[in-house]
Write a protein that binds this DNA or RNA. Structure first.
Lengths: 149, 149
DNA sequence: ATGAGTGCAAAGGCTTTGCATTAGG
DNA sequence: CCTAATGCAAAGCCTTTGCACTCAT
């Protein structure tokens, strides 16, 4: 997620979404978006704090909440207690996660389009059969990352 | 997960696993297993409390922790803050979840074997390509359940 | 008797909120 | 100027832990 051509579009899109939600694109929010954009996967508050040391924790929480309600950021839970944050899929594309059970790190991965498409087809049928209105799916690979092997 | 023939095996397996972990199968633990077995999906502490009203919250937490370390129960996080608990897949089989964004309920579903197999193949390749030791995967369908439509 | 399990209450840790201050439009 | 955003500290909420009591072996 470090492609520069995309980066420009991401920032424009973020600005548009914040405007649409009557919210400003403040320096703190810009730094949060930059941090999430540079990350290899969803970040915990602790990880975000380590990078953006000048922003107080409460501001991080509050701004992430604003960004989330503006559709810029997605908040996800992994296996542990604390939340992780990433840019919304509308901004960085649909993807999945490698979740390390040892260090807790999450990193982004994508699966081949054909598999994704076939999976979607199957899941849609499954949803219909259960009277469920499917909006999206979440697929995580759980195991040990290369650093923890 | 209410098939009686399986129920017997589940209880035997639970007893075996608790014995293996040097833990007793106390009435409270039996009631927790029964509750989880009867559920249509993973339950939150609140939901468990509503069913097993006589067991204090701390005992529920403590017993679920014992059951988890004995490999009987799995603790999972959905989108909200609080944990949910279900019987381990070794006991009730591999499955996925329908996750309602409105009421937060999770219910179990299975996908066709062929799709599951093909998905496993793909994910294994993906894991190898990323130097990741894959242990298992988690697939959730996120949307609105039939009650919340 | 002896250690595991239980139950109540207090403490922990991540997250949210109140309120006075600051800054952007 | 005036509202939104900020920063610090206090409060909330789910969860864990301490400690004395009870029960089964």
């Amino acid at each position: 997620m470090t492609d520069h051509a995309h980066t420009v579009n991401v920032f424009e899109e973020v600005m548009a979404r914040l405007r649409g939600a009557d919210q400003r694109f403040t320096p703190a929010r810009r730094e949060l978006v930059t941090t999430l954009l540079a990350a290899a996967g969803p970040l915990s508050i602790t990880e975000i704090l380590a990078v953006t040391e000048k922003i107080p924790q409460s501001s991080i929480y509050r701004n992430l909440a604003v960004l989330e309600s503006a559709g810029v950021v997605a908040r996800i839970m992994s296996t542990d207690e604390f939340a992780r944050f990433e840019l919304a899929e509308a901004l960085i594309g649909h993807h999945h996660h490698l979740l390390c059970q040892v260090c807790g790190a999450m990193s982004d991965v994508t699966i081949p389009h054909e598999i994704e498409t076939q999976l979607d087809t199957t899941l849609n049928k499954l949803a219909i059969a259960n009277g469920f209105a499917l909006e999206h799916h979440r697929l995580d690979l759980v195991g040990k990352c290369s650093k923890c092997l």
